[in-house]
Design a protein around this nucleic acid. Structure first.
Length: 285
DNA sequence: CCCCAGTCCTGCGGGC
DNA sequence: TGCCCGCAGGACTGGG
């Protein structure tokens, strides 16, 4: 479930690789089905080995290694994927390995228990067609309040659903969507088209605040313990969750409401009916 | 445009 | 106690 804060934490953990050269590309033997690489391993090697890692970028929930030729190696963790320079949790689900030259960590690992994630080597034009503005909305930490409102407000969808749509806005996932709307005092089922300008302002400001705090805490490691930083440490933002996975708890903000769980688009949403009333007259905090 | 169900995958929790 | 079902969900696809 890495979302923007977790993926940004991974990105920062990979900055130690900048300036170093890719010496080898491997799919280490593991207990699981080998990861499907794009392109296939032989061509991946041909194009990647010898290239210098010029920068490490993030686009929404993906981490990108920028290579000399302008190509990018794109890691998409999806549910359980990890990009590591430290020890992997185990060798069973180790799917991909980049060996690098020079000082510092010797290799970058892609570990993925459920195997829904992917690793791709893309040419610059492929990066644009696959990760450009036609496919991916503006990054949640870069979008302005005005742009956010203009992009989402024409829609009649529920605000929670819209926040999860990566073509509208990149980076927010299921966990942070609930957390953001709670602090913003906006009911998750309210249609975008019915939100007032002031609510959009609160959603925007809250989104930035929540995501930045989560980054400062190195993301959220839930009870399954899957998410890890690049150095294989847990994050600590889970200790600050106000609603996510807290159904039945007293709301920590108002101390009156009880956290509810509903399903939207086949995903769990958590909210406080007192802080986030359905009629939209919530005051934030 | 938007919604829904199905798909991928594995671990785990609830229920019997 | 042990086993099985179904849930968890990010992104994508196909049908309505």
């Amino acid at each position: 479930m890495p979302e923007l804060p977790e993926v940004e934490t991974m990105r920062r953990g990979l900055l130690c690789l900048v300036g170093r050269r890719i010496a080898a590309v491997n799919r280490p033997p593991c207990r699981c089905r080998p990861i499907a690489l794009t392109p296939r391993l032989a061509q991946f090697r041909r194009r990647a080995v010898g290239q210098r890692i010029e920068a490490v970028e993030r686009r929404g929930k993906r981490v990108l290694l920028v290579l000399t030729a302008g190509e990018r190696i794109v890691f998409e963790p999806r549910m359980t994927g990890l990009v590591l320079v430290g020890r992997p949790p185990d060798r069973d689900y180790l799917r991909f390995e980049l060996t690098v030259s020079g000082r510092g960590p010797k290799r970058l690992l892609f570990w993925d228990r459920r195997g829904l994630g992917s690793v791709k080597l893309l040419r610059p034009d492929e990066v644009e067609t696959q990760l450009g503005s036609n496919q991916l909305g503006p990054d949640a930490l870069e979008v302005t309040a005005t742009t956010l409102r203009k992009r989402l407000s024409p829609s009649r969808r529920a605000i929670k659903i819209a926040l999860l749509d990566q073509r509208s806005l990149a980076g927010v996932g299921n966990l942070y969507a609930s957390e953001i709307l709670h602090v913003a005092g906006v009911h998750p089922e309210r249609p975008c088209a019915r939100l007032a300008t002031d609510e959009w302002r609160r959603i925007h400001a809250t989104m930035r605040r929540v995501l930045k705090r989560a980054i400062a805490m190195e993301g959220s490691t839930l009870s399954d313990g899957t998410y890890r930083t690049a150095l294989n440490n847990p994050g600590s933002y889970q200790n600050f969750h106000r609603v996510y996975d807290r159904r039945g708890d007293k709301c920590p903000t108002c101390c009156i409401g009880t956290i509810e769980r509903i399903v939207q688009g086949q995903r769990s949403t958590f909210f406080c009916p007192v802080c986030q009333p359905a009629n939209g007259r919530a005051r934030s905090r």
